[in-house]
Amino acid sequence: MAERVLEIRGLEVTFRRGEERIRAVAGVDLTLAAGEALALIGESGSGKSVTLRQVLRLDPERTTEVAGSVRVGGEEVGRLDRRGLRRLRGGRVGMVFQEPLLALDPVYTVGQQIVEAIRAHEPVSRAEARARALELFRLVHVPSPDRRLDAYPHELSGGLRQRAMIALALACRPQLLLADEPTTALDATVQIQVLLLLRELQERLGLAILFVTHDIGAAVEIADRIAVIYAGRIVEEGPVRAVIRSPLHPYTRGLLASRTEGALVKGRRIAAIPGSPPDLARPPPGCAFAPRCSLAVEACRRSVPRLEPFAPGHAVRCLRAPEWAASAA
């Protein structure tokens, strides 16, 4: 097996808000090898972004309780001091945000921001850093890169802005790229270009990508593996093809059924999953999906099922999955 770039074991994240304690992540395990792309799929509030942000320990430490382990290249992120954390952020790990217009500073040109990011990590001159920035802009296929470096974020189109953001994230040649819904804020036609770009970069640079999205279509485009997260736990994980073709968890099946593609036949309704996600301040004792699940039995409501391997590389957290899969086959 290739080198493990990212290893998350038993990650639990709890936010304190006044008296309430919100358990956003309730035990997530993830491994990412070098050059591998993993898509973490879930709806709003499922804990997908929190998991991602915890790789760089971005959440305010005063109000966040973290348990479990996050290792980047074998190094425990939770134990890093301030300097180690700064080296990690933007150094070994780059991050792409959802809305590039908000994530780029409006008063500096995109070139200045990339130069600043490079010089924060490496002792290079401004001219060298600018040459690197130009190289990065070519890498992410920005047309007329030398002029675009001098543009302010608001002067670029959405797609170019996201390319600039990716260039910024890659400024210090990270091994791991974290992408927090990088295509959600873009037009449909631009989305696919950005996804193809990420895929190309992953192959060309041997980059590992952890990609958070609620868009299954985008996940299929870019990922080698998919992990579906629900109420702070991974409910299903496996190779893209296996998860899409033979989903095992009822939640995954519900997600796939609720896609709009192919469902736009006149008069046909888009299938929706009934009910709403559980309150994370008061999670149910058993399977978090049980209250919305048509297959749930008494045992589902008693204890949280384990994530069990089902096929090679394909695991599911559902008591009924083996039974159900056998009857469907």
């Binding site: 700064r86 952020r89 933007g90 908000l102 994530a103 780029l104 910024l168 400024a171």
Partner: peptide, 17 residues
């Protein structure tokens, strides 16, 4: 609370920077 400040933190900028 703006995203670009968060993005700057995510790219390794210290509080002073």
């Amino acid at each position: 609370n703006r995203d670009f400040v968060e993005a700057a933190r995510a790219s390794g900028a210290g509080a002073l920077t």
